[in-house]
Simulated assay, not measured.
Amino acid sequence: MGIKSFQGKRDANQAKEESQILVADYMTTNLITFKAEDSLDHVIEQLITHKISGGPVVNDKNELIGIISETDCIKHISESKYYNMPADINNTVEKYMVTDVDTIDKNMNVFDAAFKFISSHRRRFPVVEKGKLIGQLSQKDVLKAAIKVDGNTWL
Rank of each mutant, 00 (worst) to 15 (best):
S80N: 14
L64M: 03
F115H: 13
R122D: 10
K95R: 14
D88S: 13
E45S: 13
D72Q: 03
D141C: 07
M108E: 08
T71R: 13
T103K: 06
D102K: 13
N91I: 01
T49V: 06
T49G: 01
H50G: 05
N107A: 07
A87G: 12
V93F: 04
S80W: 01
H121P: 00
I67A: 03
K51F: 03
A146T: 12
K144D: 10
V142D: 02
F115C: 09
K81D: 08
V110H: 02
H76C: 14
V57C: 02
L137W: 07
K132W: 07
D150W: 11
G135Y: 08
Y83H: 13
I48C: 07
F115N: 14
D102F: 13
D112R: 10
S69R: 05
T103G: 05
I48S: 11
S53A: 07
A145P: 05
F115D: 14
A114M: 15
E70A: 00
I67N: 03
S80G: 09
S120W: 08
C73H: 00
Q136G: 09
K144R: 13
G131W: 08
M97N: 01
D105V: 07
E45A: 11
D72F: 02
I77H: 04
I74N: 00
Q46A: 11
K140E: 11
H42V: 10
L143D: 01
T103A: 03
